[in-house]
């Protein structure tokens, strides 16, 4: 179903509904596999080799190798599954979030200390389009 949903107009946000889940099934199941230490070891020593065991698309594999989390999200990854990748890399949710927003971890940390990203101007896609246009 490609019907629109009431949350489709929220900017910068991917809601993990069945449209995303169906795309991302194998990507997300690969992520789950990293809960086992032996799989983490194999993945760490050879990203590509480990990924080739999974029925993922080439785009998905490359996004994982690049640690491009926004790309992974757009290809059906869910953040709680993707967390297994950066956890395995020894990195934090805060670091991963900063890479998705396009600012340095330090800038992101400062924004959070100042109370986080305000909802104002961040509720609707048209608000983002305007500020970019």
């Amino acid at each position: 179903m490609t019907k629109s949903r009431p949350y489709d107009d929220v900017p910068g946000t991917t809601v993990f509904d069945e449209r995303m889940s169906r795309k991302g099934y194998h990507l997300n199941q690969f992520c789950m596999s990293l809960m086992k230490p032996e799989n983490r070891d194999r993945f760490k020593s050879d990203n590509r080799g480990y990924l080739d065991d999974w029925k993922m698309t080439e785009d998905q594999k490359q996004a994982v190798i690049d640690r491009d989390y926004n790309r992974m999200l757009s290809l059906g990854g869910n953040i709680y599954f993707l967390a297994k990748i950066f956890s395995c890399d020894g990195l934090s949710f805060q670091y991963a979030a900063s890479t998705m927003t396009g600012v340095s971890e330090d800038e992101y940390l400062k924004m959070m200390l100042a109370g986080g990203r305000s909802p104002d101007g961040n509720r609707y896609k048209h608000e983002w389009d305007k500020s970019n246009g």
Binding site: T13, N70, A97, M100, T101, R117
Partner: peptide, 17 residues
Amino acid sequence: MSHQLQGPRAGLINQPW
């Protein structure tokens, strides 16, 4: 409470809400 962990909008916090 309010939080967003993913995408370009990550870090959203809505204290009044």
